[in-house]
């Protein structure tokens, strides 16, 4: 039970949030706020580094050097984004090792989108355009989130992310204007990635129990459905520009609402993937754990090397003192 003192602290905390003040690492915060942030930021960080896997898969098979350097730079950015987010998460008093353990043991989640396979080169275009596009929609909103270190990480990420989406759309544009087979490849990628991209925004508001509290704390600034609708509204004209068919027969301009309608999403599939039964869940986690374990000797060697250098430096200083 919250003591009277805690209730006062909580009221003062909410007043700061309501005044749009940022909360910083050492400020008092309710335990539930800290927990929510650790969960959300670490999921976000995990998504960045697991997200490197489906794309990294295509680096060696990029069709030319221009595409290859762009994809390499994009995948390197994702690693950087993961690091900004892990750093932000660590300010909440949890260490990196624990965060990685939670990912590797399956206790922590990452975005379900990365459990789909990348079957053709067009998937790299569709991911940059749709998956990064959906992520940007989310992340731009999070630049104003109430926790300072998270908001600052988001600002950096958003600055870097827009090249990801543009390079993806450029790939789709090139394929759409190419041979019939290339156009078909683009259409197929769009069809497969469309619905999973819309599900990236999370469950519908009515099925999202954490949304109300997260909105009150201004951890979230918009609901899942608001962001999803915004994404559909800006993306449909981009599909039309490519000259591809709409991936959902239910997409229709709704004059009264001023938005595009779209079909209900397959939340059963989403829940199956969350539970670990997606097409690539096991493969992704296995690759992640393998990379971590096989890198263990590098981390140990670097520490041993640093220690040796420190001792050598110390000896040098000692003998300098003796000479003097």
């Amino acid at each position: 039970m919250a003591t009277e003192n805690e209730q006062l602290l909580e009221q003062a905390f909410q007043a700061r949030i309501d005044a749009d003040e940022k909360i910083e690492a050492k400020d008092w915060m309710p335990e539930a706020y800290r927990k929510t942030l650790i969960r959300q930021i670490s999921q976000h960080a995990h998504s960045e580094i697991v997200g490197m896997l489906p794309e990294g898969n295509w680096i060696t098979r990029a069709p030319n050097l221009r595409r290859k350097v762009a994809l390499l730079a994009k995948v390197q950015d994702e690693a950087g984004h993961g690091l900004y987010l892990y750093s932000a998460c660590e300010t909440l008093g949890i260490d990196r090792e624990t965060l990685l353990d939670q990912l590797h043991s399956g206790k922590a989640k990452y975005s379900s989108i990365f459990n789909y396979p990348t079957l053709s080169w067009a998937d790299i275009g569709a991911i940059g355009w749709l998956v990064d596009g959906a992520a940007i929609m989310n992340q731009v909103a999070l630049c104003r989130t109430s926790y300072g270190p998270y908001a600052r990480a988001m600002v950096r990420i958003c600055k870097e992310e827009s090249f990801h989406q543009r390079q993806g759309y450029e790939i789709m544009l090139t394929l759409s204007r190419g041979t019939e087979a290339q156009k078909q490849m683009a259409q197929d990628a769009l069809n497969r990635w469309w619905e999973p991209s819309l599900m990236m925004f999370g469950p519908s508001d009515k099925d999202s129990p954490n949304t109300a509290q997260s909105m009150a704390w201004r951890v979230k600034r918009f609901t899942n459905d608001e962001l999803r609708q915004r994404f559909v509204d800006i993306t449909v004209p981009q599909i039309e520009f490519l000259g591809l068919s709409l991936p959902d027969a239910g997409i229709r301009w709704n004059e009264a609402d001023g938005h595009y309608d779209f079909s209900p999403l397959n939340w059963d599939e989403f829940n199956q993937i969350l539970q670990g039964n997606g097409p690539c869940n096991r493969q992704r986690l296995k690759a992640r754990v393998k990379a971590h374990e096989e890198g263990a000797w590098v981390r140990e060697a670097a520490l041993a090397h640093a220690e040796k250098r420190r001792q050598r430096e110390e000896q040098k200083q000692q003998s300098a003192i003796q000479v003097a």
Binding site: G80, L83, Y84, S87, A88, E90, R96, R152, A153, R156, R299, A302, L303, H305, A306, R309, R310
Partner: peptide
């Protein structure tokens, strides 16, 4: 921001990359 590194030299290199 912050990062993990074995020593100062590596911290500078990682900071450059990140």
């Amino acid at each position: 921001g912050s990062l993990h590194a074995a020593d100062a030299a590596m911290a500078v290199e990682n900071a450059r990359d990140v």
